[in-house]
């Protein structure tokens, strides 16, 4: 066993040498697609370059990435991820108190980050992450039975992000001639719509990956 570990270490060290040598040869003056991405920014419907890449130039990647998240949730569910998190009936006074202060702040920050994405670093994923955190906090500080959520609303929430994104992508085809090409002058509004539904679905997906579906829906 010891010799195998040593052997692996030697091979890995060799890899490191090769990799470092290759990285050393990357041209440090090349600016990639920066010039092009910034030049097209006025046509992208947003003012922040990263948001433009995520939701316009390479929106298809973002669509797929939401599908990855959905796949993970469906996967966790299919593998039998606990039907319900064992909620602690006696949580002490601290958790609900903290939650009542933090939850409004988290939700407010999530909305702010979503709005910010148009011209600063921010957007649906940052916002979705905060929503997910808020959901987890709310779940942990809830009493059993505090979550009167119907199963179908969870399903709608899960798929709404990627289906609205996909439908927008398809419905613009007659107007702009291409999948996911926003017609002239509508990019800002469509991107905002997509970001809102994405943030919601992402938040819910993260919550479900943490807790499992049974924790948030009413037992039948």
């Amino acid at each position: 066993m010891k010799t195998i570990v040593n052997l692996v270490s030697v091979v890995v060290l060799l890899w490191l040498a090769v990799l470092a040598w290759a990285l050393w040869h990357i041209p440090l003056t090349d600016s990639g697609l920066q010039t092009l991405a910034l030049a097209e920014l006025p046509n992208s419907g947003v003012e922040h370059a990263v948001t433009a890449v995520l939701l316009n130039y390479r929106a298809y990647d973002t669509l797929l990435e939401v599908v990855v998240l959905l796949a993970a949730v469906l996967g966790a569910r299919a593998a039998g991820w606990p039907v319900a998190l064992p909620l602690n009936a006696d949580r002490g006074p601290l958790l609900p108190g903290v939650a009542s202060v933090l939850l409004p702040l988290l939700l407010l920050s999530a909305v702010y980050l979503l709005w910010l994405g148009k011209h600063e670093a921010g957007g649906s994923f940052q916002s979705g992450a905060l929503l997910g955190a808020a959901g987890i906090l709310a779940l942990l500080s809830a009493q059993p039975g505090d979550w009167p959520v119907r199963a179908w609303t969870v399903r709608v929430g899960l798929v709404i992000g990627f289906s609205i994104f996909l439908l927008v992508g398809v419905l613009v085809i007659p107007f702009s001639g291409t999948f996911l090409a926003y017609p002239f002058g509508t990019a800002t509004e469509l991107i905002l719509l997509i970001e809102i539904v994405l943030a919601f679905s992402i938040g819910l997906a993260l919550l479900l990956l943490f807790a499992g579906q049974g924790s948030v829906i009413d037992p039948p």
């Binding site: 990639g32 370059a49 990263v50 130039y57 390479r58 994923f125 992402i202």
Partner: peptide
């Protein structure tokens, strides 16, 4: 360059999933 930055954001979500 915003393109690799966006790739990292996408990559993070994929890695999280």
């Amino acid at each position: 360059d915003p393109v690799p930055q966006a790739m990292v954001l996408t990559g993070i979500v994929v890695a999280v999933s």
